[in-house]
């Protein structure tokens, strides 16, 4: 029964994931007093890409062809570990929150290699920046996960999700986790999905050579990754209240942040991540103090 629920959860979350992206876009446009595309636009985009012919570079190797599958595989496997719909619904036998961070790194590793594979300077630049930012994000992600886990004494996502009492340290750690989410989902102020400007793009530069169905897979993987991080905040870090409502709140927060800030210079991201790191250390300190 549990496994059935887990399977159902993963199918629903994957199916819903493009909608969240569409929703964020809609909220952004609402704030900007624009009409904007409908919330289902990401689905249409995926369908369009799935029907398209693929153009691949002559210089690429099997790494380039394989990377989209590795990425989708890693985000799906990571999604299995998050108890989104209820504290008991995840494959906690397979791994914990630490394992989740490492599994996501697996997909990123191949994505960065694929960026280098075509021999274009854009791809290399994207890979370099992606690995740079992710190596700064990783300690923050881990420490904020530690901070939320310290209170219940286990890094198991289910144990953290079913830990009933509200602790102040969790709130602070959630702040750091939110910064991680912004960086990992390529959102402003770290990255900007909406532009293909050579000098600023990170994720988009890395996937510049992709087209057709491979691009559709990569896009879908980004949607899933977004749902994954939102769910970690909604279901694991703040395990109170209605899951769907919390997801909407997080989406709205991300959208509000995106319209209210400009993209940072690459090396300002270091400051942002240092700040988040300090925030997560503070969370641990507060937890050590017993709050």
């Amino acid at each position: 029964m549990k496994y059935l629920l887990v399977a159902l959860q993963i199918v629903v979350l994957i199916a819903v994931s493009p909608f969240i992206t569409g929703l964020i876009k809609k909220i952004k446009n609402f704030i900007r007093l624009r009409k904007g595309p409908g919330v289902f636009q990401p689905y249409y985009d995926l369908a369009k890409l799935a029907g398209k012919e693929e153009v691949i570079s002559r210089d690429t190797s099997w790494i380039f062809a394989f990377a989209p599958y590795a990425v989708i595989g890693s985000v799906t496997a990571a999604l299995l570990l998050v108890p989104a719909f209820g504290p008991g619904i995840s494959l906690n036998r397979a791994g914990d929150l630490i394992a989740m961070i490492f599994i996501l790194a697996f997909g990123r590793f191949f994505m960065a290699l694929a960026g280098l594979d075509a021999g274009s300077a854009f791809g290399g630049m994207g890979s370099s920046r992606e690995m740079f930012i992710s190596s700064l994000v990783e300690p923050v992600a881990l420490l904020s996960v530690f901070a939320v886990s310290l209170n219940c004494g286990s890094t198991d996502a289910q144990a953290v999700a079913s830990y009933g009492t509200f602790r102040f340290s969790t709130l602070v750690a959630t702040g750091a986790l939110f910064a991680v989410t912004i960086a990992e989902t390529s959102r402003i102020p770290v990255d900007n999905r909406e532009t293909h400007l050579e000098l600023t793009m990170i994720h988009e530069a890395m996937v510049l050579e992709y087209s057709g169905r491979s691009l559709a897979l990569i896009e879908l993987a980004s949607h899933i990754k977004q749902v994954l991080f939102f769910s970690v905040i909604a279901a694991v870090a703040v395990p109170f209240g209605n899951y769907a409502v919390k997801m909407l709140v997080i989406a709205a927060a991300v959208a509000a942040l995106e319209v209210s800030m400009a993209k940072m210079r690459l090396f300002r991201v270091v400051d942002m991540m240092s700040f988040s790191f300090v925030l997560s250390v503070i969370a641990v300190v507060i937890s050590a103090m017993g709050y």
Partner: peptide, 28 residues
């Protein structure tokens, strides 16, 4: 479990979303 989850998801993606037509071209 992690390895088989990654593998299953990749294989499913490959089965459903394998490119049908590809053209080889120069890098952009």
């Amino acid at each position: 479990i992690i390895a088989s989850a990654i593998f299953t998801a990749s294989a499913a993606a490959f089965y459903f979303m394998r490119p049908r037509r590809t053209t080889e071209c120069n890098t952009w």
